[in-house]
Amino acid sequence: MSRHLVLVTGPSRSGKSEWAEKLAAQVGDPVIYVATSQLDPTDLDWQARVQRHRDRRPKHWITQAVPLHLAAAIHTAPAAHCLLVDSVGTWLANYLDQPEEDWEKTTQTLLISLQSTSNTVILVAEETGWGVVPAYPLGRTFRDRLGHLTRQIGAIADTVYLVTAGYALDLSQLGIPLQQR
């Protein structure tokens, strides 16, 4: 099977990770679950969330912890594997201190790796821009960077899903793509 790029986006607790897992299981290739979070041993709530995701996944899936070098992980993944990246927002948060010019290079490297891989890649991305504009600069940086990156990935994706309230909508079939700015 040739490359197929899928973006699954939606608000928190919407079912987007579960939908992405279902899609990955249907591909038919071995699955590499690319976990982008960094575990903080003092954050018990986060550890519990991560454990719930682990418990839900099939035991035969390979898990790779990739908090930073996502483009490299995609580029070096073995052929004929499906990569499920969960999540773009968590990966981005690991780079929030990166200056804008460096961030642009990081995102371009990621986009190039997504376009050049022969593997199927399913990315889970959070929708954070549906609420108020954050009152603090770091929150605005996160929201703006994630919105821009999600739009860039959506522009090159073969399929884009919006998952909300437990329902998945195929935006690539229902939506009208906007031109990139």
Rank of each mutant, 00 (worst) to 15 (best):
L138Q: 11
S17W: 00
E127I: 06
D144T: 05
A157F: 01
S2C: 06
A48D: 05
A77D: 08
A48Y: 00
W130I: 06
M1Y: 06
I112N: 12
L5D: 14
P177Q: 04
V85E: 10
S37M: 14
E21C: 04
Q38Y: 02
I153M: 07
G129R: 08
G175K: 03
Q173N: 13
V124Y: 02
Q108Y: 02
D29Q: 11
G89A: 15
G175D: 02
Y136C: 12
T107I: 14
H81S: 13
T141W: 00
T164M: 08
R181W: 00
D40Q: 07
V85Q: 10
L162V: 03
T128F: 01
G28S: 12
L84A: 09
Q173C: 14
V6I: 15
A125S: 15
T117M: 11
Q98S: 05
D29H: 11
P78C: 14
V34H: 06
W19T: 14
R57S: 11
R145A: 09
V88T: 04
R140P: 01
T9C: 12
G28P: 03
W19N: 03
H4A: 15
E100T: 05
D43W: 00
Q98W: 03
I32K: 09
Y33G: 09
Q47A: 10
V66F: 00
L70M: 09
L174M: 12
L39F: 04
V121M: 13
G129Q: 04
D170K: 13
L39S: 10
A125R: 03
G131D: 07
Q26W: 02
D144E: 02
L84E: 08
T150V: 05
V133Q: 11
A20L: 08
L68S: 05
G15A: 08
K105S: 15
F142S: 07
V88E: 06
T42Y: 03
S113K: 14
V50D: 06
V34R: 04
S116W: 00
L83I: 08
S14R: 09
Q152E: 10
Q173S: 15
A135D: 08
I153K: 03
A135Y: 00
L138C: 03
Y136Q: 15
R52E: 08
S2H: 04
V27E: 13
L178K: 14
L92I: 08
I176S: 14
I156Q: 11
A65M: 04
A24F: 02
